[in-house]
Design a protein around this nucleic acid. Structure first.
Lengths: 135, 135
DNA sequence: GCCTTAAATTAGCCCTGGCTAACTTTTGCC
DNA sequence: GGCAAAAGTTAGCCAGGGCTAATTTAAGGC
């Protein structure tokens, strides 16, 4: 309850979006070989201008590489982040389903929740998935 | 996986912050009778200028009422939102603890997670708390 | 009661993440 | 090969949520 919390807000929102993007980029590359801006436009339901903005920031932050009119590629850092995000996402989604939440809602909620799940909580979810609920 | 998701992002970030604020305001009022801007400054570790900004927006949105140099008060809508947020918060936090997560981490994670927990997921967590893990 | 100090307000700045509109480049079809 | 449509880029706008710095008001101690 003290003061040192809530470091989230701005900086963390940025990270969340970055994670969503690299995850989506990784998905697109896996599915069709490349990721074009339009894939992200469809995925996130924003305009191409917005995608361009965001991707520029990702590039600035060293997560992706793009050249004009070329597909979007992930850097090693981007790939690592995507893998981490995806893993967390999958664990959270599986956990919610196991909890009895419907597939549809589990898919939606896991996207929001995944960004706020610490290592410890993620480990606890994994444990339950593997070994059942703690006595 | 289609396009119609991700309505979050901006609008939802705003709502999250609003929920955090009304919850904190309700807490402060409960604990000390009134809520002053400084309480929020301490709670969220931001400057008074930022608190002022944010509280103005909350007032604009009908969640709080403030007069210059007066304590911050909640409207009925603000109180309702605070109660809802707190309830969700408590369920999520209790659930995480039950899951085996440490008190400290449960407190932190529940703050991030609570905003992304749908009615259905919240109900599932409550069910587990009351009736145990689903077979 | 004055005067310091704490609290609140105001103005002005920055970045993020949205948007529209106008333009350029690629692509693909005939 | 040319041309329309699709994709990408650029410029310029807006709101949210941060900040500093300067000012004003309220409170407390003496």
């Amino acid at each position: 309850m003290a003061a040192i919390r809530h470091k989230r807000t701005r900086h963390d929102h940025a990270s969340e979006l970055a994670e969503d993007y690299v995850e989506a980029i990784a998905d697109a590359i896996e599915q069709s070989g490349v990721c074009r801006a339009m894939d992200l436009v469809n995925q996130f339901a924003v305009t191409h201008a917005t995608v361009n903005n965001t991707v520029s920031r990702l590039q600035r932050d060293g997560l992706v590489v793009t050249k004009p009119y070329q597909p979007i590629e992930l850097t090693n850092a981007g790939r690592r982040l995507a893998a981490k995000a995806r893993h967390r996402h999958q664990v959270v989604e599986a956990f919610l389903k196991r909890l009895g939440v419907s597939d549809r809602v589990a898919a939606i909620d896991s996207e929001g929740i995944e960004h706020h799940v610490s290592k410890e909580t993620l480990a606890a979810m994994k444990r339950v998935l593997d070994e059942g609920w703690p006595a």
